[in-house]
C-alpha cells in the first residue's frame, strides 16, 4: 500500500502501525551518480554567471 493510499484513509481509526512502517520503508538507498550526466544537461550553462545573477532581497 502506498503512503498516499494509506494517509487518505486516515480518518478511520486504529490502522495497523506495522502497515504504516512497512509503507514507508520499502524505498531503497539512493545512489545519485548515475543521474549526474542528466543533471549536467539541466544545469544552467554558465553556472558562474547564473549564480552571480541570482540576487534576492531579504523578506518576511
Amino acid at each position: 500500500m502506498s503512503e498516499r493510499e494509506f494517509i487518505s484513509k486516515s480518518t478511520s481509526q486504529n490502522e495497523s502501525t506495522e502497515e504504516v512502517v512497512a509503507a514507508v520503508t520499502n524505498t531503497s538507498a539512493v545512489d545519485i551518480t548515475d543521474l549526474l550526466d542528466e543533471i549536467d544537461g539541466v544545469l544552467e550553462k554558465n553556472a558562474e554567471e547564473f549564480v552571480k545573477s541570482f540576487v534576492q532581497k531579504g523578506g518576511e
Binding site: 494509506f6 494517509i7 484513509k9 486516515s10 486504529n14 490502522e15 504504516v20 514507508v24 545519485i32
Partner: peptide
C-alpha cells in the same frame, strides 16, 4: 491508541531519526 495519522507521523519520525544515525544517505528519497 492514537488516530492513524498521528501514529503515522510518530512512526515516520522515529524511523527517520534512527536511520539518520545508521545510514543517513539512504534517506535521500
Amino acid at each position: 491508541t492514537g488516530d492513524a495519522m498521528t501514529m503515522h507521523v510518530l512512526n515516520h519520525w522515529t524511523r527517520i531519526i534512527s536511520t539518520l544515525r545508521t545510514n543517513k544517505m539512504s534517506l535521500a528519497n
